[in-house]
Amino acid sequence: MNRLFAALLAAGVVLAPAAFAQQDNVTPAPSPDAATTTPSGEAGPAGGEAADHGAGDAAASGEHGTVHYPLKHPPELSWTFAGPFGHWDIAQLQRGYKVYKEVCSSCHSMDLVAFRNLSALGYEEGQIKAIAAEYTVQDGPNGDGDMFDRPAIGSDHFPHPFPNPEAAAAANNGAAPPDLSLIAKAREVERGFPTFLFDIFTQYNEGGPDYVHALLTGYGQDAPAGITIQPGTHYNPYFISGPALAMPPPLSDGQVTYDDGSPETTDQYARDVGAFLMWAAEPHLVERKATGFVVIIFLLVFAGLVYTVKKRVWAGAH
């Protein structure tokens, strides 16, 4: 025993300094990639910003350890769709859609959502037709081989604000705004140990909408000393991949008119659009949870029955 421990300790002691000695020679692998990848970057980093990042990270890891983003964790809000009996707040989804339509959609596409999907938001068929008809889409070719414009119909997906990704990038400081269809599932701030374990039991799944809300309301703060903000970017401590992003603060109080008397504040807009984006990312969320409840109840009852049978079968065996 003792000899074993001694041998193991010795091995550790001999090899650990070797590992330390090598640390300095190791260049973080991602930095060259980061430098080459700027142009098609996502929402945030404009122009050379992403490249600066890579370099910044690399430099930082040498002496002070890498800076991890976001600088602040998003606060946890209460959402109606959270928890085992989660459900949509239809009025909130309609408000969120209004915010998306009047604000976000001027830059952000939403490829995966069709007008017909809006029926889940409580719109009637006629209303959906009217909403779709506000947009013009290109169709064709027709019998003469010509492309033609027509009003959108329910089966059309939300039209793009820009004709192509290059145009989107050109109009937005070099970085095309990301598609928002899945954004509420595609952004997740790491929860850390042991919170991520508690999340299993609290069913915390709302990292995406929490992030959307935090980001949209996180503008306007002063950057802490030591953080340089590149020109053309905006400091936001909640931004997941840097200290600042190219998107200017999109929301301001009173910007969108609500018909249902809800407060017309940035905070409320951000909540509503967060809920709407969660719906867009996971349209079957409520159906999923409701089905899950039935499945779990069934399995519990079934487990009880199998347990009783098991008891009886094994009663004679020990």
């Binding site: 085992p84 599932k185 997740e188 299993i200 799944n205 990292g207 999923r288 899950g292 499945v295």
Partner: peptide, 17 residues
Amino acid sequence: AYFIFYMPNFLGHADNY
């Protein structure tokens, strides 16, 4: 079933969306 219906993305990574 608990994970399928209540935590379906817990074991995945957001970047894959």
